[in-house]
Computed example of a mutant assay.
Amino acid sequence: MTRAALLVLADGRFPAGGHAHSGGAEAAVKAGRITGAGSLADFCRGRLHTAGLVSGAVAAAAVLGVAAVELDAAVDARTPSPALRGASRRLGRQLTRAARATWPSVELDVLAREFPKGAHQPVVLGLTARAAGLGPEDAAYCAAYESVSGAASATVRLLSLDPFDATGVLARLSPEMDRVADRAVEAARRVVDEGVDALPAASAPLLEIGAEAHAAWAVRLFAS
């Protein structure tokens, strides 16, 4: 299992729960920061180089065998927003369920026991990639793509944006996804030698602020 497994894992139809989350796009649309394809591209670029980079490095480090408990604590430290921490753990719990059914492994079973409320999603993503026979580069690419694809698909629903335009945004970002995935793997390899402090800590304060505001809404289309 190599590239075909990556396609399954990165497929938006994989039952990992991502369809219920907007990656912060719903809050950004309401705040007027996303109004069309151009501003969606800016938003996705920001997510890619911050949340995408961190998630990619964590996922790649998990594939390389760095302890899940250490990586999970590192994600906690890099996620100031309680709302985002909760969303990440819910996504991690759902991904764990899907991964254990798809690529059963002892490591995933142990993870489910150690984190009954869910480990952070990028940690689970890395262990899922490992169970599927994928490498750190594959996990980093999957994380980078997920960091922007969810926001793009959510914006189609939120703004009735032409899906062709949203897909075009993702396609034009692909060279940057390459670079972010490469940086994430480089960081993950440093983690193996230096510990989790070598993980990137790129921040996106508006994502954190928007997540807290979004969590307080009485009515919303997406969970986060």
Score class of each variant (00 low, 15 high):
residue 77 A to S: 14
residue 115 F to L: 10
residue 98 A to R: 06
residue 124 V to W: 01
residue 72 D to V: 00
residue 97 R to Y: 12
residue 63 V to M: 10
residue 77 A to D: 15
residue 109 D to I: 01
residue 90 R to C: 02
residue 121 Q to I: 10
residue 62 A to K: 05
residue 80 P to C: 08
residue 63 V to Y: 06
residue 55 S to W: 15
residue 99 A to K: 12
residue 126 G to D: 04
residue 79 T to W: 00
residue 107 E to D: 14
residue 117 K to E: 14
residue 97 R to K: 13
residue 75 V to E: 12
residue 111 L to S: 11
residue 58 V to R: 07
residue 62 A to C: 11
residue 129 A to Q: 05
residue 75 V to P: 03
residue 101 A to G: 15
residue 103 W to R: 05
residue 98 A to L: 04
residue 86 G to H: 10
residue 93 R to N: 12
residue 60 A to L: 05
residue 90 R to Q: 14
residue 131 A to E: 02
residue 112 A to M: 09
residue 77 A to K: 14
residue 128 T to Y: 03
residue 82 P to F: 04
residue 60 A to K: 00
residue 91 L to T: 05
residue 71 L to F: 05
residue 67 A to R: 15
residue 110 V to P: 07
residue 129 A to T: 09
residue 78 R to Y: 00
residue 89 R to V: 11
residue 131 A to K: 06
residue 88 S to D: 14
residue 137 E to N: 11
residue 129 A to G: 12
residue 115 F to I: 01
residue 64 L to A: 11
residue 76 D to I: 03
residue 97 R to A: 14
residue 112 A to K: 08
residue 128 T to R: 04
residue 112 A to Q: 14
residue 124 V to C: 02
residue 79 T to K: 03
residue 83 A to Q: 06
residue 65 G to H: 03
residue 72 D to P: 06
residue 117 K to R: 14
residue 94 Q to W: 03
residue 137 E to I: 02
residue 113 R to Y: 01
residue 126 G to I: 05
residue 116 P to A: 02
residue 135 G to H: 06
residue 118 G to I: 08
residue 111 L to D: 01
residue 109 D to H: 12
residue 94 Q to E: 15
residue 68 A to K: 09
residue 68 A to F: 10
